[in-house]
Nucleic acid binder design. Structure first.
Lengths: 111, 111
DNA sequence: GCTGTTTATCGCATGTATACGATGGACTGA
DNA sequence: TCAGTCCATCGTATACATGCGATAAACAGC
């Protein structure tokens, strides 16, 4: 067996999954490209990254499975866009997590 | 060669590293334990998690290398604590990242 | 010094992630 | 229909991640 993630609660597991989706620079770069450029054609993303087309496609799949982006077929090409609602939710979740840590931590510097 | 992370800018690479440190439920659980409990002895953390001592020690090392926690030797045991300054910085960095995405994205729903 | 406790590290096994080229399927336009 | 374009997936290779038991290193107390 490789991972024991099952033994943690669902919320924690979900957050870890989301962090994992953000844990590769190529995927962060893809998100930035989608936010910055006015188009979202897959081919343009590939052209912007120093990676092979098949590799970028794989990263796009990870981001899609994590819910960060959507992809719609547009004739021969595919249009990828950010999912603002999902990003908003994830931002709130991470924000709440860090707040929870920081609320309890600062007064406990016994180290 | 396995990763091409070198081909992305340092800021992106650093953020990916931090996300990777948060990408396992055991590590999120460790951070919560350190925030919630009034002690931070390694042995207590091990007792709280469904993992072997050696595995927890490995996760602690990852969190330490990412800067999220500090460990100080206290006699025979080791006292781990959150690093509030580091957590604050990471929270701001992630917050700014998501804000940057959301500022540009919402009006671009061509998908 | 010896012994027991505590934690880090090593060795090993297994599963996952990343990358690329090659292939295939879907669509467009001649 | 046929050729060309675009993208996803497959196959393969390699590196990393996770887990455990066993062992080592550091310390406390006797």
């Amino acid at each position: 067996m490789h991972t024991k993630a099952d033994q943690f609660d669902a919320e924690t597991a979900e957050m870890a999954e989301q962090a994992k989706a953000l844990s590769h620079p190529a995927r962060l770069a893809i998100l930035r490209v989608l936010a910055d450029r006015d188009e979202c054609i897959c081919g343009e993303i590939v052209a912007d990254l120093p990676l092979a087309q098949s590799t970028v496609s794989r990263h796009l799949k990870v981001l899609k499975e994590a819910g960060f982006i959507q992809g719609t077929v547009d004739g021969p090409s595919v249009c990828y866009c950010l999912d603002p609602a999902a990003l908003d939710a994830v931002r709130d979740q991470f924000g709440a997590f860090f707040e929870g840590l920081l609320d309890a931590a600062p007064d406990r510097a016994h180290c």
